[in-house]
Design a binder for these strands. Structure first.
Lengths: 229, 229
DNA sequence: CTGCTTTCGCTACGAGTCGTAGCGTAACTG
DNA sequence: CAGTTACGCTACGACTCGTAGCGAAAGCAG
């Protein structure tokens, strides 16, 4: 899972393996010399999460991480070119715990996901890293892409799954146009993720069951106290 | 508008002016020695915004700002204790341009505000600063408080104004409980601000008129393609 | 076992930033 | 005028960065 330049390649991005000198190698292990220690990878990522929780984004330095992971600073730089990329990998796995429960109603499913996301955002590692990563991403398109691929986009599955389950239950009408469905998924995802993040990380208010209910009302039903004429 | 420790006071926060040695001074100018240059204040804040747009949050250093503003680094530190506080003041004024238009319908008002906010978030100074500030705020409660007071809370007036206008027009029912109304304002604010920020700064997608219409639909009406039984 | 290759830990380096201190000078007040 | 405060400038120790060079260790092919 690390940023993983292939062993002996300097740092060239090489996103397209098209004209590779060793073609059709597949996923074969191209091991010739001493292999990289997998234990070091784990130690580094763990140390990164711990340091993130203790020192925050600004206090996190490559030197600290290396020391805490009992690894030379050089080793760290051999695998991750910068703090940004390291933190992406260290934080991405935290989001894997989110699941779509299928509790029998769209409302219950949404509330459950919101609660899970709120719990995740309450963790200090997540708080310290997430917004800082997003901030760096606004200046570095490549980093933003990595963030989307590793953290953001994988969570859209939750919206897709919940939506599909609701359609199976007959709560939502089946898709007509795939294009429209995709845009709808995007907008719902931005709304749920953005709102919960803003509530927790910016406003600094807790996510209570009552708040979740109100928010779900706003999503599912009409605007509160709207006079329907 | 700067962080403004009163001239000769070291740095004590003194949020409550209750037991002030010189009481009832009002807004009088307590000038004794050489007054601080207002031109320097403006030059520093302008330089901060420019450097923010050019170099981003990470590239912004106190030294750069001082040089660009043609001011000694010492002068800068005399007024703002850190980069965070400086940027709060430099960015806060950008948000003053947001206005509640009163276009005759709740839907039109919401769409107009979303469009304004989207334009603001498209500016490089805003992009570079906003999320980074929020990120720092998650670790420093005092900074978060300053951010809220200077940037976030003042914009809640937009929700209040739009809501009041809609109530006058009869689109929304009048308030019953002030407590409930306050929570409702909070949740609407978090939803609009959070969603637009997530769309622009995280997903990196533009805010089009079409997207704004869909988002307003989600807010005002029921969930898209919801089967009402 | 013997080379070959690559990673490892360690040390050291120049460059850059941080926030502060000291100094003499400038500006404004009574 | 004296008193007070802000200003520009220089210099400082502490820290982080990312890189380079070294000898040693670990795995693989013959």
């Amino acid at each position: 899972m690390p940023a993983a330049q292939p062993p002996a390649s300097p740092d060239v991005a090489a996103p397209e393996p098209a004209d590779d000198p060793a073609p059709a190698a597949g996923a074969a292990a191209r091991a010739k010399g001493r292999p990289r220690s997998a234990a070091a990878d784990r130690a580094i990522l763990d140390a990164t999460r711990e340091a993130l929780a203790e020192l925050g984004w600004g206090g996190l330095t490559m030197g600290h991480v290396a020391t805490r992971a009992k690894v030379a600073k050089t080793t760290l730089y051999r695998r991750w070119p910068s703090k940004n990329e390291l933190v992406v990998d260290a934080v991405a796995s935290l989001f894997d715990d989110l699941v779509m429960p299928d509790l029998g109603s769209l409302r219950a499913d949404i509330e459950a996901v919101v609660a899970q996301f709120a719990d995740l955002l309450a963790r200090p590692e997540t708080q310290a890293a997430l917004l800082a990563l997003f901030a760096e991403g606004t200046r570095d398109p490549q980093l933003r892409r990595r963030i989307r691929e590793a953290i953001v986009d994988p969570q859209k599955r939750l919206v897709r799954q919940g939506r599909a389950a609701a359609q199976t239950r007959g709560e939502l009408a089946p898709d007509t146009d795939p294009e429209t469905a995709c845009e709808e998924i995007d907008i719902i995802f931005d709304t749920i993720a953005g709102t919960v993040e803003h509530r927790v990380l910016v406003s600094g208010e807790p996510i209570t069951a009552d708040w979740t209910r109100r928010f779900t009302n706003l999503l599912l039903g009409p605007f509160p106290s709207l006079v329907t004429d």
